[in-house]
Every structure is written in C-alpha cells, then in structure tokens.
C-alpha cells in the first residue's frame, strides 16, 4: 500500500467515523421523539397535557439530581450520597420550617447539602479516596445521622402552603419543572461560559495532563461535588414540597436512577465528555417509558426491570459502536 492510498483511506475512514459519531449524537433524540409519537398513537390517555404535566412533575426531582451527577461524571466520578443528602435536606427543611421559619429551613437545607458535597470533594480530591468508596461512606454516614436525629420518625407539620413548591403550577407548567429547567440552565451555563466548566472536561479527559497544564485539578473536582451536593439538596426541598413530610427513609433510589438517566443520555462513565441535554433527555426518556407502562396497566413492579433493560440496550448500542470504531 502506498502512503498516498493509506492517507486517503484514513481520511475516508475518519469521515465515516465522523458521520457515525454525529448520528449517534442525535440517535437518542430521534429515539425519544419516535417513542413519544408511538406512545401518543397507541397508549390511551398518554397524549394529554395533564399526563405530560404529571410526567414532568414526577421526574423533575431526579432531573435536578441528574444535572449535578452529570458534572461529577464528566470529571470521571459520581456520587452515591445524593439520596441521603436529598433525604437530609427535606428532613432538615421540614424541622426548621415547623420550628423556626420557612426561609431559614430552605437555606439551611441547601447549605448542608453543599457542605456534604464539599466533604465528598475533599476526600476524593485532597485525600485521594475513590468516588465510589467516599460517597458510599458519606451516604451511610448521613443516613445514619438522619435516623439518629429523627429516631427514624417522619417530620410532620409543614404548612399546607409549602406544597406549592412541589405540586403548584405557573400557568400550565409544574413548579418543580421550572426549578429543574433553572438548574439545567445553570449547569449548561457553567459548562459553556466558565473556566470551571472548561476545566471539568479537561480534568475528566486526562487528570495528569490537566495538572501539568496548570489547572488546579483538586479545586475543580471539589467544586463539582459541592455543586452535586447543592443540587441534591434542592431536589430534597422540592421533594418536601410534594410530600409535605420530612421522611428520613426517602430518596434511597436517587443515586442509581440519576446515574442511569445520565448514562442513558449517552454520557460515558469514563469522563471527559457529556452535555446537559443528555442528562435532561435521559431523565425524560426513563420517565416517559415508566409513565407509558403505567398507563397500559403494567404492574409498577415491572418498572425497575424495564429501566434496567433500557440501560443495557441504550448504553450497549453506544459502547458497541465505540468498540467497533476502535477496532477499525
């Protein structure tokens, strides 16, 4: 083979790979739209605004958590403590709202979430424990404190008016969804317009290279976990708005559901790549499928099994494509 032939073949291959890459970028969006159309046509009561609003309201909380999870996954980590932080946030907010005042309850809950995130980031970045172990430990730790502090009893007595935050609407749009949209927009802006966002990608792509290029890798990692904790706390307050009860045993499924949403959105756990719309789309995709199953009368017990299958298929297709591309 002459070098010239080799070159043009390489260019052709590259172009083909490029086309594949851009196709798989939009594949998820296309699948999502096709699913929506299919559900609208065949699933009874699916295509009503009441149902859409219901889906949005139910999934906004996980969407908020997924935005934080996305940041951490892009740096090459993840956070198993977001559920514990969410529960903590809703219990603390409930207790303070009942005993002191609503603004203080909300602010304290958010600050506590931020603090747990900082602790996670500290142990991961500065001490060097891996994210799995660190956030597993803080999850258990926070849950433990929560059960001790409440004697495992739910906190009642939050005024009815507080449910506006979880169940209210502005016009036709649920308030949790507006909060979700705001969090997603902030996440997008961080990734798009700030040095932090820029560094998150470089750090996730190659920590050594980032460090030698003069990027403060520890600070970047710490900040993403702090944001992850903060977002989980926001989600916890919204949860309180939906239930009106500070329930220490709630939110246990958040970490894995949020990771699933981001991963189904096409973001690899290996880090370095990922966009906000992936987290948003992944969340909505899982939510819409669960809703459709529910509407056609499938037992809710089937839902986790279906979620698992969706993860395997969506991520499997993406990973297999990537592997084939590398083999060429």
């Amino acid at each position: 083979m002459t070098p010239v032939d080799g070159d043009s073949a390489a260019i052709r291959r590259e172009k083909a790979a490029w086309r594949w890459a851009s196709l798989s970028t939009y594949a998820l969006a296309i699948i999502f739209v096709l699913l929506l159309i299919g559900f609208c046509l065949w699933v009874p009561h699916f295509a009503t605004w009441a149902n859409f609003a219901n889906v949005l309201q139910r999934n906004s909380i996980i969407g908020i958590v997924a935005c934080g999870m996305l940041l951490m996954i892009v740096t090459g980590g993840f956070d198993l403590s977001v559920g514990a932080v969410g529960a903590m946030s809703s219990v603390v907010a409930a207790a303070l709202i009942v005993q002191v005042s609503m603004p203080l309850g909300i602010v304290a809950a958010l600050l506590l979430g931020l603090a747990v995130g900082v602790v996670n980031g500290f142990f991961i970045a500065k001490i060097g424990i891996n994210p799995f172990v660190t956030t597993l430990a803080t999850q258990v730790l926070v849950t433990g404190f929560l059960f001790v502090g409440t004697a495992a009893q739910p906190v009642y007595g939050v005024p009815e008016s507080f449910t506006v935050l979880g169940l209210g609407r502005i016009g036709p749009i649920p308030i949790p969804t507006i909060i979700f949209a705001a969090v997603a927009t902030v996440t997008w802006a961080i990734l798009r317009f700030t040095t932090l966002g820029h560094y998150i990608y470089i750090v996730g792509g190659n920590k050594t290279a980032a460090r030698l290029a003069g990027i403060n890798v520890d600070r970047v990692i710490l900040t993403t976990y702090a944001l992850g904790g903060l977002f989980a706390a926001i989600a916890g307050v919204v949860l309180l708005g939906q239930t009106n009860i500070g329930q220490p045993a709630s939110a246990a499924d958040w970490p894995l559901t949020a990771i699933a949403a981001v991963v189904v959105g096409g973001v690899p756990l290996s880090g370095g790549v990922g966009q906000v719309w992936s987290a948003v789309l992944g969340t909505l995709l899982l939510g819409v499928i669960a809703n459709a199953l529910n509407l056609i009368g499938v037992s809710p017990f089937w839902q986790p099994a279906v979620t698992g299958a969706v993860i395997l298929v969506a991520v499997g297709l993406d990973s297999y494509q990537r592997k084939q591309r590398e083999l060429r």
């Binding site: 040095t195 820029h198 990608y201 470089i202 792509g205 290279a209 980032a210 790549v273």
Partner: peptide, 21 residues
C-alpha cells in the same frame, strides 16, 4: 497521550487550557 493532552476534548479546549484562567 498519557500526560500531555485531554484526548476526549477538542483542539480548542486543549489549546486554551493553560491560557484560559
């Protein structure tokens, strides 16, 4: 590859990495 560049990032992202801040 091992310690120079973020291979998953764009040319732009790598070029400005040190200058950005």
């Amino acid at each position: 590859k091992a310690s120079g560049l973020a291979l998953t990032s764009s040319v732009e992202a790598n070029i400005v990495a040190s200058a950005l801040g």
